[in-house]
Design a protein around this nucleic acid. Structure first.
Lengths: 300, 300
DNA sequence: TAAAAATACTCCATAGGTATTTTAT
DNA sequence: ATAAAATACCTATGGAGTATTTTTA
């Protein structure tokens, strides 16, 4: 019979591909880890790792074992969380991921409100692109994440809690200033600047403008802040989410922010969590809190 | 940190609702079980069971915990099976469920072939209705089951490996004998005898005859053997699966078995397993074996 | 020869057993 | 009074540490 401990150790070795570092991460000695892995392998009847003094590789069977094992381990850990979740709601450590086109605009609204209402909650925020967030939540590296739908969340649950428009950012004096209602047609004819591949905002903007992927509109901006500087410098126009409006205007005065023709482009802001995440209640409350702070500033 | 052992013990208590019996099932003393459960509850911070000297109840929170815990435990056990599965394919214990309208007809074909080809395989067969089989496979009480589709298998995987027609069984001298091609219309006008509720054969037959559920055609037979006696006794007609034909004719000579108008009613015979079941390979081989023995007798 | 994993050995934490007590019907 | 769970106490297994050896690039 293998044990959860052995699984935890094996997963650490998989992550580190190095026994000493894996042992440190597990807070045990290298020797204890070695024997534990050896014992695991003898119980399984096959080698999970192929190792010599220089490298650690994962065997094909090991791969199969580890992927199942990780699922089991994450589900087991969530089960463990159930106790603390019901006993001390909205307290203790909680790690939340956010995409780069949400984090800088949502955090200044969210963090003070959380600090005030849930002082016992020890939030850890990570900024990553949507796909990374989905993986990290699945792996149990994050408790939850906030991203923009539509996005393929695989087996995860998503709860969308906010719907926001995209606005058009153009340099002052740009011809579109006096164009009246601006729709996809006008955007197609403008030089539309977008974030690099991997940022969902790019995909959402393209979809909104009814432009097929891969038409080469991307200018490789890696943040909205940068993008807005390019716009102000007259290199083109871009779409920004509503929540970014005030911050970006403050940052750069050479801009005009215009609404788009209804029904304009939208995105849904949503939480994603594992189906077994124990502290669902925490997510519910955070959702409510976020709705309130967003309503407080938005024009909804 | 709770442990898998604690989970195993808690699940035993849930099943038995009795500490002494649960302890026996786990091969430990009552005292060891009591302390383990107490420790588990203290780690969770809430009581899973409410107990006095006469009864053991499950608390609402306990219910929540146990249902997640069972999922984790089953997945964990399957992970354990991975070792033996890859090292010794088609050997060791394996429990398979079958529905009552398959078991008596498939077993005489299957068991000799399995005994010959896979002598190391220690098969344990259980006969239950489809829904029970789905539950037992999900709970890990069974490795796999063989039933007839369509049926809602919830989260389980199904692999259908055989497609068979239903045949019409009528008493000798019945008016349908000379009716030529027999379709749903004729069946609707006959006195159609069916198995009790819960037998999927009933649902499949009704669907095949395009008769809505709950139209009261059921006569409450609990086995095809019984049903066939009723038919022979002139109480009506019934549909039987092809694989039952020879056995039922041998058993009762006062019958006529007729084909139905094409495209007549069908059912798919399928294996169901948990998504994480480790010995998928075993299932594949059994599927192949079953296809061969069924082809050997059928008119396919 | 040097970096990393495996081994030898010792120790202690804890899971489990036996015997007994408590509890509630 | 009795059946069942909780508790007290003891034992032994095995997980983990330190120190050392083996391995091979």
């Amino acid at each position: 019979m293998i044990t959860i401990k052995q699984i935890r150790y094996a997963l650490a070795v998989e992550d580190e591909l190095h026994f000493k570092r894996a042992a440190e991460r597990c807070n045990i000695s290298q020797s204890a880890l070695s024997t534990a892995i050896a014992e695991l392998e003898s119980q399984l009847g096959f080698n999970v790792f192929e190792r010599d003094n220089k490298k650690v590789l994962i065997t094909p069977l090991g791969e199969r074992f580890l992927s199942k094992a990780r699922e089991v381990y994450v589900a087991f850990s969530d089960l463990n969380g159930l106790g603390s979740a019901v006993n001390a709601p909205l307290s203790g450590p909680m790690s939340i991921g956010m995409i780069p086109t949400i984090a800088p605009y949502l955090l200044p609204l969210m963090l003070p409100a959380v600090a005030e209402q849930y002082p016992a909650l020890d939030l850890k925020i990570e900024e990553e692109q949507s796909q990374v967030l989905v993986d990290k939540v699945s792996r149990g590296d994050l408790d939850a994440a906030i991203l923009a739908l539509p996005f393929d969340c695989q087996g995860l649950l998503s709860f969308s809690f906010w719907d926001e428009d995209f606005l058009l950012a153009i340099p002052k004096g740009h011809e579109l200033e006096s164009a009246g209602e601006i729709g996809p047609e006008q955007l197609k004819l403008s030089r539309l600047l977008l974030l690099k591949d991997g940022h969902c905002l790019k995909d959402h903007a393209l979809a909104a403008c009814k432009i097929a992927k891969g038409q080469g509109f991307s200018m490789g901006g890696t943040s909205l802040s940068t993008l807005i500087q390019l716009v102000a410098g007259g290199m083109g126009v871009t779409l920004i989410p509503e929540m970014a409006k005030t911050q970006l205007i403050d940052q750069q005065s050479g801009l005009n922010i215009l609404p788009l023709k209804e029904p304009g482009p939208h995105r849904q802001i949503a939480f994603i969590i594992r189906p077994n995440y124990p502290a669902l209640d925490n997510i519910e409350r955070l959702k409510e809190l976020l709705k309130i702070v967003l309503e407080g500033v938005g024009q909804h």
